[in-house]
């Protein structure tokens, strides 16, 4: 039986999510797993934007911030259910991406970089400064999602860590499924054409501006949902979630893992989430190692970790 890349990706993810807990020595590993999945959702959006449509964003954490604060503020101010707040955050992010994206997506390369950077900084400044609304840099509590209690009522009693592990894992698989469907759709093909050459894409009749804008909006929704899940899981959020370093982290995870494929980017999210946890013994050297890894992977494994590893394996098999 030959698997399509889409079903292969989903199968790998499902097996990983389901079977990894068998090897967990303690509850802490559920937490790390859940973080990997949350980051995985954000980088799936980066794959669509950067890997397929070829656009750069240095400000996507801004959307994560909107998703996160929607979950903190909407339930408190309009007594919206946290689950609906996730949807609200995603809608606001998409709308904002549409508004911001129309003017700035005309820009190329580094100019697009600085424009998106500016957008991210603006969001993080609002979250920091509008104290009356967001409670400022000290952060704000986020209400309980309530799903765990519901499951308990149905006889499925999970610990907090376990619940968030499986819930985020399911969300990631759903997100990957949607992204892979997009890949094979006409929109996905047009996006990839655009990455190859904008001029060529235009000559075959692709509406460049619309395609870029769609990719930008979709990736914004992924970032927003990832921010929401982080907020709900942590039950507390600070403006750091929208910070510049978080934007860079998203792009780095995706590109390091392999920005061309969903599985590659998620692999990158896993690697970069685990790295600092593994380095705690050498905390002093953590920054040095992180910087070194970023440089070495980009120089020697240009397509990213996963594609390079897979190619090595294949090369050996032949």
């Amino acid at each position: 039986m030959k698997l399509t890349p889409k079903s292969a990706t989903l199968l790998v993810l499902a097996v990983l999510v389901a079977l990894s807990p068998l090897f967990f020595p303690s509850g802490y590993y559920y937490r790390v797993g859940a973080l990997i999945f949350v980051n995985g959702i954000a980088v799936t959006g980066i794959v669509i934007l950067t890997g397929w449509a070829g656009q750069i964003s240095l400000g996507h954490a801004g959307f994560a911030g909107i998703g996160a604060y929607a979950c903190a503020l909407a339930p408190a101010h309009w007594s919206l259910h946290p689950a609906l707040a996730v949807v609200l955050g995603a809608a606001i992010s998409a709308l904002l991406a549409w508004l911001v994206g129309r003017p700035i997506l005309r820009l190329r390369g580094y100019y697009l970089g600085v424009a998106t950077l500016g957008f991210g900084i603006l969001v993080s400044m609002v979250l920091n400064n509008e104290r009356d609304l967001t409670r400022g840099p000290d952060g704000i509590e986020v209400p309980e999602l309530g799903l765990r209690a519901l499951l308990k009522g149905w006889g499925l009693d999970l610990s907090n860590g376990q619940f968030w592990y499986f819930f985020c894992g399911l969300c990631l698989i759903a997100g990957a499924w949607l992204a892979l469907n997009l890949y094979n759709s006409p929109t996905g093909r047009a996006l990839r054409a655009l990455h190859g050459s904008e001029v060529a894409a235009r000559t075959v009749g692709v509406d460049l501006a619309r395609m870029k804008l769609q990719a930008f909006m979709i990736s914004a929704v992924y970032a927003s949902v990832s921010g929401s899940l982080l907020a709900l899981q942590n039950k507390f959020i600070t403006p750091d979630v929208a910070g510049f370093m978080h934007s860079i982290e998203m792009v780095t995870m995706a590109v390091l893992g392999g920005v061309g494929s969903v599985l590659g980017a998620i692999f990158g999210a896993g690697a970069l989430t685990l790295l600092p946890q593994a380095l705690t013994v050498f905390a002093e050297y953590e920054q040095m190692v992180l910087g070194l890894v970023m440089m070495l992977v980009m120089i020697f494994l240009r397509e990213g970790l996963l594609p390079s590893i897979l190619r090595k394996l294949r090369g050996r098999g032949e």
Partner: peptide, 15 residues
């Protein structure tokens, strides 16, 4: 980073 702090708190307690 509050997110890291939460992870470390979990690690300290569980692991």
């Amino acid at each position: 980073d509050p997110n890291k702090a939460r992870t470390f708190a979990t690690r300290l307690i569980e692991d």
